[in-house]
Design a protein around this nucleic acid. Structure first.
Ligand SMILES: [Zn+2]
Ligand SMILES: [Zn+2]
Ligand SMILES: [Zn+2]
Ligand SMILES: [Zn+2]
Lengths: 177, 177
DNA sequence: TCTTGACATGTTATCTTATAACATAGATAG
DNA sequence: CTATCTATGTTATAAGATAACATGTCAAGA
């Protein structure tokens, strides 16, 4: 599943950053996830990183679920499919994906999510709904710029950042929390 | 130790947010920590929160160390002083301090640090040096504003945020990493 | 072709971090 | 003084992460 195929950015697809306002909306994301997987594959090749079967499968799992998954959730699925069933198997694959910009780690949730914009050099911010637990990756170039500025005033040089927020998504706000 | 006493903000004291550029510098912070503790006490009273002996002692410990401490580090010190020696003792006190704005949780480090600006309604950003492990709390009102803006574009309402960055502090940059 | 070294995977065992559940003690309010 | 609420303490266990070592895979270089 999720085979590579041509993809045109669409306002209806939350996987396309062109439509941030629908990121929390319910949707069939086979559209965007297939595209993301194809781009991830190309990106890994370009970087000389090897997207091996386990690694690729972990990325697929993250894309299929389209939400943040714990390492042990991923591991459970891997084991069911004949891969190793010990923690390091999952952690190593996840670490690889994070290192190569194909996934993000969400520390507040002790979880990982596929990156929806691989290769686009972005500093993501994660918005976590405390009511329905949905997570969205918000474009946060401006946030990162402000952070770089604040750090620079203290003479600090930022290499990586984690920006995470807890609150209410549009749906849960509408439903009166 | 760390008794309440009059305190004038000073450019030499990293505890005073007037001098962000020296936050990473070596210093005697009994100056600022005493002041912070006094303010924390006043703040807790004003909020109707009870700064009990364990809670107060945990805050003092965080201030004394002036760095991020893991819950089990704190617990060890508590136990050595006759308080309970089981994890919930430390976690409950730490959670109380975080809830009441007297300490911050740094998720990247699984650690906690005393807030250096209690009661000042700030959205902190933490700068973590990957080389010397020092942590500084940077004023990040602008960062938070940008984050609120990015969230608003997606219809998301932020209630709390974690902004953390990993990189190099001034000293370690100077020393060639 | 064979060897060697780099990298990836798998497994065992252990460690660190965090919480559930329940019992006891202290403070507050009627 | 008693009821009630809040805080502390303890036992036990859950959840997250890594160290260390063994095995397998593959391709460059002898
Ligand atoms: Zn991303
Ligand atoms: Zn929601
Ligand atoms: Zn603070
Ligand atoms: Zn440093």
């Amino acid at each position: 599943m999720a085979q590579s195929r041509p993809h045109v950015h669409s306002d209806d697809c939350p996987g396309c950053h062109a439509a941030p306002e629908v990121a929390f909306a319910r949707h069939d994301h086979s559209h965007c996830s297939g595209d993301v997987l194809a781009r991830a594959e190309a990106l890994a090749n370009a970087q000389g990183a090897r997207l091996t079967p386990v690694r690729r499968r972990v990325l697929e799992i993250l894309l299929e679920e389209h939400r943040a998954l714990g390492a042990y959730d991923v591991l459970q699925r891997l084991a069911a499919e004949g891969f190793g069933n010990q923690p390091p198997v999952a952690y190593r694959a996840l670490d690889f994906l994070v290192e190569n910009g194909l996934a993000h780690r969400i520390r507040r949730l002790n979880a990982f999510a596929a990156c929806m914009h691989p290769g686009e050099a972005h500093a993501p911010a994660f918005l976590i709904c405390r009511h329905c637990n949905h997570v969205a990756e918000a474009p946060a170039a401006a946030v990162r710029a402000a952070l770089d500025g604040a750090a620079a005033e203290m003479g600090f040089l930022i290499e990586r950042s984690n920006i995470e927020a807890l609150g209410l998504c549009p749906a849960c706000r509408g439903a009166g929390e």
